[in-house]
Computed example of a mutant assay.
Amino acid sequence: MAHKILAAVFALLVSTGALNAQSVDEMIDQAKQLEKQMKEADALAKYKEVLKVEPAQLSALVEASELSSREGNRQKEKDDKTRYFNEAKDYAQEALNQAPNNADANYAMAVAMGRLALISGAKDKVAASREVKKYAELAIKFNPNYAQAYHVLGKWNYEVANLNFIEKNAAKALFGGLPDGTLQQAIDNYEKCKKLDPGFILNYYELARAYNKNDQQTQAMEVLRKAVALRAIYQDDPAIKADCKKMLEEMQ
């Protein structure tokens, strides 16, 4: 009788473990479907549910970080942006703790730090900027064909090329300066991203901005025309396409 009871308990434990594993997989599938439906806030909530069950689930950590960065960027108030971006950073850090050589985890950290840099004062912006470059380059190291990591590197070059006097002085005081970032390097990075992922609409918008800033209006307009014809994939894509259309109309 004792053996039968032990066998029953063992069977229950095994089946419960399988059920938990299955439920996590199902929740991740549901989150991915929500992303495809452009319901990113709901997808983020679903990934958070996964992490309550399995806190070290790598793909959920990476996706929660990326979605927190995107959701934060949609907020109107700086405090709300900061909260989301810090959550994105925390999720990315935990993903890196689990898998420091994972390209997606490094990319997620680059994005989170990039978002924080854009809303920070001169000192914090410069410090965050160094981290953006570091993690974007690591993502590319671990996956040389990581299109969106090249996009982040392009954004880094664009922002560094356009640092103001105060920010440049902060960089010099804190770190003896920053590596050179140029518009041409930004354009090269964006073009690399476009080659690897021709459907990434945000990259077209940023590439057009870089071309325009570099006094290459013809190239900028060509990029914008391609962008407005692309199919929306991410939740922000319709708004980005509208921005591309507006920029194109202003340049014509």
Rank of each mutant, 00 (worst) to 15 (best):
residue 129 S to Q: 14
residue 76 K to Y: 10
residue 196 L to D: 00
residue 232 A to R: 06
residue 6 L to M: 11
residue 85 F to R: 01
residue 189 N to C: 09
residue 69 S to F: 13
residue 15 S to E: 03
residue 97 N to D: 11
residue 190 Y to A: 07
residue 58 L to A: 02
residue 207 L to C: 09
residue 30 Q to P: 03
residue 185 Q to V: 02
residue 121 G to R: 09
residue 58 L to M: 04
residue 118 L to T: 14
residue 38 M to C: 10
residue 32 K to G: 08
residue 185 Q to K: 11
residue 34 L to V: 04
residue 165 F to P: 03
residue 178 L to F: 07
residue 171 A to F: 00
residue 178 L to P: 13
residue 229 A to M: 10
residue 119 I to C: 09
residue 178 L to M: 12
residue 212 N to Q: 13
residue 135 Y to N: 15
residue 78 K to I: 08
residue 215 D to R: 02
residue 209 R to K: 13
residue 30 Q to S: 03
residue 109 M to A: 12
residue 70 R to W: 15
residue 80 D to K: 14
residue 44 L to S: 06
residue 133 K to G: 01
residue 184 Q to E: 06
residue 193 C to Y: 00
residue 23 S to N: 07
residue 219 Q to I: 05
residue 216 Q to H: 05
residue 196 L to R: 02
residue 77 E to P: 00
residue 128 A to C: 04
residue 136 A to Y: 06
residue 62 V to Y: 01
residue 228 V to P: 03
residue 27 M to C: 08
residue 186 A to Y: 07
residue 83 R to S: 11
residue 227 A to W: 10
residue 109 M to H: 08
residue 219 Q to N: 07
residue 50 V to F: 02
residue 28 I to E: 11
residue 185 Q to H: 04
residue 144 P to M: 06
residue 165 F to K: 04
residue 184 Q to K: 13
residue 155 K to N: 15
residue 208 A to P: 04
residue 13 L to W: 00
residue 104 D to K: 06
residue 23 S to Y: 00
residue 38 M to W: 01
residue 196 L to W: 07
residue 14 V to E: 06
residue 141 K to W: 05
residue 107 Y to V: 01
residue 156 W to T: 07
residue 175 F to S: 09
residue 202 L to D: 15
residue 135 Y to W: 12
residue 101 N to V: 03
residue 97 N to W: 14
residue 12 L to G: 03
residue 237 D to Q: 09
residue 13 L to C: 15
residue 98 Q to T: 10
residue 223 V to N: 03
residue 137 E to C: 06
residue 95 A to V: 07
residue 24 V to A: 01
residue 21 A to F: 10
residue 98 Q to F: 13
residue 91 Y to T: 14
residue 77 E to N: 08
residue 216 Q to W: 12
residue 67 L to I: 01
residue 161 A to D: 04
residue 51 L to Q: 07
residue 137 E to A: 15
residue 252 Q to M: 08
residue 94 E to A: 08
residue 9 V to G: 12
residue 149 A to W: 03
residue 213 K to M: 04
residue 148 Q to K: 12
residue 72 G to Y: 05
residue 206 E to T: 07
residue 88 A to G: 09
residue 130 R to E: 01
residue 13 L to P: 03
residue 140 I to C: 04
residue 52 K to E: 15
residue 21 A to Q: 08
residue 198 P to M: 08
residue 110 A to P: 15
residue 11 A to M: 13
residue 203 N to M: 05
residue 130 R to Q: 03
residue 117 A to W: 02
residue 103 A to H: 05
residue 140 I to S: 05
residue 70 R to E: 15
residue 212 N to Y: 10
residue 29 D to G: 13
residue 189 N to R: 05
residue 13 L to H: 05
residue 21 A to H: 08
residue 74 R to A: 14
residue 58 L to I: 01
residue 92 A to R: 09
residue 72 G to K: 04
residue 97 N to Q: 13
residue 166 I to C: 05
residue 228 V to S: 01
residue 175 F to G: 09
residue 40 E to N: 09
residue 47 Y to S: 06
residue 238 P to I: 01
